[in-house]
Design a protein around this nucleic acid. Structure first.
Length: 353
DNA sequence: TTCCGGTATA
DNA sequence: TATACCGGAA
């Protein structure tokens, strides 16, 4: 980890020089105040600059000060936020504005703990406000910064893994210059949005840090950053049969004693999404004669690691097939997991008729 | 359709 | 530690 600190310290000079030439002209940069920085950073959470611009203008007209924000009507505030998404940001903004007027005399506190205690302000936003509006040398690590640091160091640490966040933060702190910390943090964001782009084609040719960048030197900039393979939920398709005989008995199967839903009961099912024709063929193969197709449905159920996509058929049949049949009395004692809730509900409807 | 992400919350 | 919250880009 420490092996990077020397390299990281070399970032600031070329990055700031690049920023002075290439920085985006943005309303919250042209006129800087803690309030404006705060509002802009909240709006920029999960949201691109282009989307924020018109909102920021309108917002500043309507709520030019912390006091105005604190006093605003919530409905009006939400209207101002309409279309920007994540509406709890607007509510938290106002909650925080009321705390700031009540407890801090209308001035944002220049203190990390105090800022982070305000609703809507987390680690990143606190860092952004402190460095940009107050000149405090504290990192502000967002997705851009994670990507840049990951490439710069050539690190294959997973940027989505919370365990690694501390390491990236340490790197960001090592790179942060004592002078112009706000400009530095904003430079990283601009670099991330214009040059060190996500995906396979960062513009290394335009990058002021290319000569220092480990990923660039190793030609692996397209492979970084590493992000968890999103723990892909595997998707399983199945056809579920709700089979009922005229005497009211229903077919159920016991799941294996190990694995998912171990030992619980389920309606007979087979892999794949079967059409009614294929399903009929399956029933015939089981030695069942269809008396009546009652109902069909689609359902899905999501487990931590699997997603079931189910096609259901409720059928009145005659015969036993190879299946085990249970009366309503017996079924009351049997555990049928909620993954089959839809089928169970259909059964209850049918039995209610 | 899927991907992406700061913060709050459970 | 995982997930909901949202809209827009890929």
């Amino acid at each position: 980890m420490e092996q990077y600190t020397e390299k990281l310290k070399e970032m600031a000079r070329p990055l700031l020089a690049w920023y002075d030439e290439n920085r985006r002209i943005l309303p919250w940069r042209e006129e800087v105040s803690p309030y404006r920085t705060w509002v802009s950073e909240i709006m920029l959470q999960q949201t691109r600059v282009a989307a924020v611009l018109p909102y920021f203008h309108r917002f500043m007209e309507r709520c030019p000060t912390v006091e105005a924000l604190a006093a605003a009507d919530e409905q009006e505030l939400l209207k101002l936020w309409e279309g920007l998404g994540y509406y709890s940001r607007a509510r938290n903004l106002q909650k925080a504005a009321r705390i700031i007027t009540g407890e801090y005399g209308g001035q944002l506190p220049a203190d990390q703990k105090a800022l982070m205690a305000l609703p809507g302000i987390g680690d990143y936003t606190a860092g952004a406000i402190l460095s940009i509006a107050f000149g405090v040398p504290i990192p502000a690590v967002d997705g851009n910064v994670l990507r840049i640091l990951s490439r710069f160091t050539g690190s294959d640490l997973d940027i989505l893994d919370a365990k690694n966040r501390k390491i990236f933060r340490t790197w960001a702190a090592a790179a942060l210059p004592a002078e112009r910390p706000g400009a530095f943090n904003q430079a990283l964001m601009d670099l991330g949005s214009a040059v060190c782009l996500p995906g396979p084609s960062p513009r290394c040719g335009d990058c002021p840090l290319a000569h220092l960048c480990a990923a660039r030197q190793e030609g692996k900039q397209a492979m970084l950053p590493v992000r968890t393979p999103k723990r892909e939920k595997r998707r399983e398709e199945m056809t579920v049969f709700l089979l009922r005989r005229t005497d009211g008995a229903v077919a159920l199967c016991r799941r294996p004693q190990r694995g998912l839903l171990a030992g619980l009961w389920e309606y007979p099912n087979i892999p794949g999404l079967l059409t009614e024709v294929s399903a009929a063929r399956q029933l015939a193969a089981w030695g069942l004669a269809v008396q009546r197709w009652e109902k069909s449905w689609r359902a899905k159920h999501v487990f931590t690691h699997v997603r079931w996509d189910m096609q259901g058929y409720a059928v009145t049949v005659t015969g036993d097939g190879e299946l085990a049949w249970y009366t309503a009395e017996q079924r009351r004692q049997m555990a049928i997991p909620s993954a089959f809730e839809r089928a169970t509900r259909v059964l209850e409807e049918l039995e209610g008729e």
